[in-house]
Design a binder for these strands. Structure first.
Length: 598
DNA sequence: TTAGGGTTAG
């Protein structure tokens, strides 16, 4: 390399292209020095690659300094600089450079520029900016470019503009596999995704156009494979077409396969894919950790995390810590949460929104509301609906209804759109703290002001809110006026209310409704039978018991358990079998008295 | 120099 002739720029060019993969600032600087030494410091191809290498090594400022020193700037140089800012998550700078580019006399924006700006708009979820980019493309006649049209489609897909995306897709003069993949990625996931049959129909249409699925198509389909048979067929297709032989896309696909097998409860097959991989990155390790967590083995999740760091020297990212957090809180409770919190601080991930959200939730559920609030106030800098929802539910869980309502109002004023779970959070907080009016107010605001579609869970909360406060008949009126079909949780809330406020008729009605919608659940029959028995209606008791027999239903007794010093003690109702039963009931009676105290 | 895919939380 060092003996390269000054006239040749190929060697440094190849080196720079390699550097974009290594993302090393030091090597980029060394090559930059060599480029200057060889007198290539104004060569446009070398400069483009240098700017790219600096951006890839997470130094967009270096790219900008270099860019400023260039005498003649062509569109390619501008585009590379803008792209660097996109990759480094600095959206404002991109539009600033675009404006400078428009004012320059040497270069004009081209399809590459607009394609990058479309991608940027999609990534920041700015539909207005995206539409502006689209308008400019139409005006300048670039829209027939396939890659640019694909970028615009992708932007619409990310900004809730699926109708516009589809319009572009349908009107494209020529579609590539990427065009289909971009649409497919929206159809397999997200709020308005297709049902399975339509997803397959869409892929069939792609095949009839003579296009062959590639690794992107397969990974899209794998994320959707809820059915094991489909997933296995896709795995066979990957092997038959040797798609997993390429290092980059092979790792990607194996990661999807691990996830697919885990979601279908085939953990041993997921592990087989994992063990056969020669190169494993943090995504792969995390997918496997998550597989164990969701298949009920949090110990193995923690074990894999340790193996990843100690044996494979792979550094964790925010998601691996998040997965570890869920696993270790199941094993070690609060101790696990605090340790991972420490590890997150050490690794510089403490401001990551999802991680903060989990910490808030875990601290709340483990009794440390103040720690949860500290994370919420100080660490969680970019709060989303989940962050607010976790904190609101946490307050509700600790009986702090007023605080939950205050947070909910603050969330609305900060411009965060509440989702169904945060509405449930504030309603249940009000319900538990007896704040009926505030709860109803929050409900009405969500439905009437924000145009929220009530979910069954939200309706259950309203029934609970009214019922708990003694307004059992009002709760029943609410159920009758519901537009949705009332589910078990709605009638269940009415049962609780009518038990507490001893409303016999409503309780019978609620049990009967539950039997109707859950005919296989023996609990509802037993509860109804017991209720009849308590008022000596023996004929009715016999009727219910007969129906249970006819339907071959048996109720297994309810059981609770507690683990102390690794030994699990289990209890049935009115159980006196435990050696310390007398002491246990003594404490239970004391606690009951405390709970009943006004 | 432009587009599309993987692990995560309430």
């Amino acid at each position: 390399m060092l003996s390269t002739k000054p006239s040749s720029y190929l060697a440094p060019l190849h080196l720079l292209q390699l550097l974009t993969k290594t993302q090393s600032l030091k090597l980029t600087q060394q090559t930059h020095a060599r480029v200057c030494h060889l007198g290539l410091h104004q060569n446009p191809i070398i400069l483009t690659n240098l700017i790219n290498a600096y951006s890839r090594s997470k130094n967009p400022l270096q790219s900008q300094i270099l860019f400023n020193s260039i005498e003649l700037k062509d569109a390619c140089l501008y585009n590379t600089l803008i792209n660097g800012y996109v990759k480094n998550n600095l959206p404002h700078e991109c539009f600033d450079i675009f404006n400078t580019m428009c004012q320059s006399v040497d270069s004009f924006p081209d399809e590459f520029t607009f394609s990058t700006l479309a991608k940027l708009s999609g990534e920041i979820g700015d539909l207005l900016a995206g539409k502006w980019v689209h308008g400019k493309c139409v005006k300048l006649g670039f829209v027939t470019d396939t890659v640019l049209a694909n970028s615009l489609m992708s932007m619409y897909g990310k900004c809730d503009g699926m109708q516009d995306a589809r319009k572009l897709f349908d009107e494209m003069p020529q579609r590539t596999v990427s065009s289909w993949n971009i649409m497919l990625s929206r159809y397999v996931n997200g709020e308005n995704c297709f049902p399975d049959s339509q997803v397959w129909e869409f892929v069939k249409c792609m095949l009839t156009e003579g296009l062959k699925p590639n690794e992107f198509t397969l990974s899209n389909l794998l994320t959707r494979s809820g059915r094991f048979d489909h997933g296995r067929e896709l795995h066979c297709y990957i092997i038959r077409n040797e798609m997993n032989l390429d290092v980059d896309s092979g790792v990607h696909l194996d990661c999807c396969l691990i996830d697919m097998y885990s979601r279908n409860n085939k953990l041993s097959l997921a592990r087989l894919v994992f063990d056969q991989m020669r190169f494993k990155n943090v995504y792969v390790w995390t997918a496997m950790m998550s597989g164990y967590l969701h298949n009920g083995d949090p110990q193995e999740t923690v074990h894999l995390f340790c193996k990843m760091r100690r044996m494979s020297r792979v550094e964790p990212n925010e998601v691996s810590l998040l997965t570890l957090l869920s696993a270790s809180s199941l094993i070690a409770g609060l101790l696990g949460v605090e340790q991972i919190h420490g590890l997150s601080v050490k690794n510089g991930f403490v401001n990551h929104t999802s991680l903060c959200n989990s910490l808030i939730d875990m601290y709340s559920k483990n009794g440390l509301l103040t720690s949860a609030r500290k994370v919420f106030d100080h660490d969680c800098r970019s709060k989303d609906a989940v962050s607010w929802g976790c904190m609101i539910s946490g307050c509700g869980l600790h009986g702090k209804g007023q605080e939950a309502v205050g947070l909910y109002d603050k969330m609305l004023t900060s411009g965060i759109k509440p989702d169904a779970i945060s509405v449930v959070g504030v309603l249940s907080a009000c319900s538990k703290s007896g704040l009926v009016e505030k709860g109803l107010d929050a409900y009405n605001k969500a439905i009437k002001v924000s145009g929220f579609e009530p979910t069954v869970e939200i309706c259950s909360c309203v029934v609970d809110l009214l019922g708990r406060s003694g307004q059992v008949n009002e709760a029943l009126t609410f159920i009758k006026a519901m537009r949705l079909e009332p589910g078990p949780s709605v009638w269940g809330a009415l049962v609780s209310a009518s038990v507490v406020h001893t409303n016999y008729e409503t309780r019978v009605l609620a049990y009967k409704s539950l039997i109707e919608i859950e005919p296989e659940n023996p609990s509802n029959y037993v509860s109804l039978s017991n209720l009849y028995a308590s008022s000596r209606k023996w004929d009715f008791v016999a009727d219910v018991r007969r129906t249970m027999k006819e339907r071959n239903l048996r109720k297994s007794p309810g059981c609770s358990w507690v683990t102390v010093n690794s030994k699990t003690h289990s209890f049935l109702v009115a159980d006196k079998a435990h050696p310390a039963a007398d002491k246990i009931y003594e404490i239970l009676n004391e606690l009951t008295l405390v709970m009943k105290r006004p």
